[in-house]
Design a protein around this nucleic acid. Structure first.
Lengths: 157, 157
DNA sequence: CCTTGAGTTGAAGTGCACTTCAACTCACAC
DNA sequence: GTGTGAGTTGAAGTGCACTTCAACTCAAGG
């Protein structure tokens, strides 16, 4: 019943590089048993964890947040389908928001291309309602970083 | 007619930090004239360039590619609305693809949550064939993030 | 003039998500 | 027993997109 996987096997089946798997382990996202010779051996259940990690990344979640989510799984037993469903569902609104923003961007872009004003002005592209009218040299509220931002810019013309 | 902007003004109007504007200049994404005292003075047209940069980033384009796109603008004259429309339109398919993948991910996630299998197996979530069928250097799955899978994603269970 | 806030520079630092490297050990087929 | 490919480690490196810092200069109002 053990049926453990080596790091190479887990890598092959998950599509994630061995170096990345070791990295995930350091961050506490996955775990492995060790053989007498100190080599990692993964339970099949780790496959789901890795899959969940990759999916979460596609949703735009950081490894740190993914770790938090994974920490909420029961430690005592192997997570049930329901456990995984709960976690995955927790990203749902995030995904929706991302899709919404991207779709809005597309529509705005189409509008701009159509009217020719291109890149803002009366476009809603930037500045939905003139937030940050008078910030100082720290009017930072643009893209936070890797994620797509809910970032209104100032009036641009 | 000149009506030049200081870096602080451009920053305030674009919502981009002065340090980022200097960084963009170093990369050749924007340009500035200089006063006798060596301070930057931006033509209003630079506002559109900055806006284009931020929009492009939201689409998921790297600064390097944005630079390439901007390089295609006419140098002789101030870019026309049509010039900007052309550039923006060039990201359209990218945006569409991103939206499509994210939407597919959402649907797959819903399906998995519904059936309880969660995280792939017969799910299309970790789909091989569909997207990235055996690319070389760049088998990027979804987000144009850092390197993805060196090994082709295999069956996950 | 003087003060003060805004601007200048190059170099170094940051955060994320990994990858690469060197030096070494394991597991296993022959 | 031995060769070979797979695995181990910590430390350092990578790429991107910036930010921070120190030391200094500029621009403009009073």
């Amino acid at each position: 019943m053990p049926d453990l996987l080596t790091i190479g096997e887990l890598s092959a089946r998950s599509g994630v590089a061995p170096s990345a798997l070791r990295y995930y382990e350091r961050l506490g996202l996955i775990r492995a048993d060790r053989t007498g010779g100190n080599q990692r051996r993964y339970a099949r259940a780790e496959l789901r964890r890795v899959a969940f990690i990759r999916i979460s990344q596609q949703v735009g979640v950081s490894l740190d947040e993914i770790r938090e989510a994974l920490d909420s799984l029961p430690e005592a037993r192997t997570p049930s389908p329901q456990d995984w469903a709960r976690l995955s569902a927790s990203w749902r609104s995030r995904l929706d928001e991302r899709i919404r923003l991207l779709t809005k961007l597309r529509d705005d872009l189409d509008g701009c291309i159509g009217c020719g004003c291109l890149s803002l002005q009366r476009c809603t592209l930037n500045n939905p309602e003139d937030t940050l009218a008078g910030e100082g040299p720290g009017a930072r509220l643009v893209l936070p970083r890797p994620t797509d931002a809910p970032t209104p810019a100032g009036s641009l013309s």
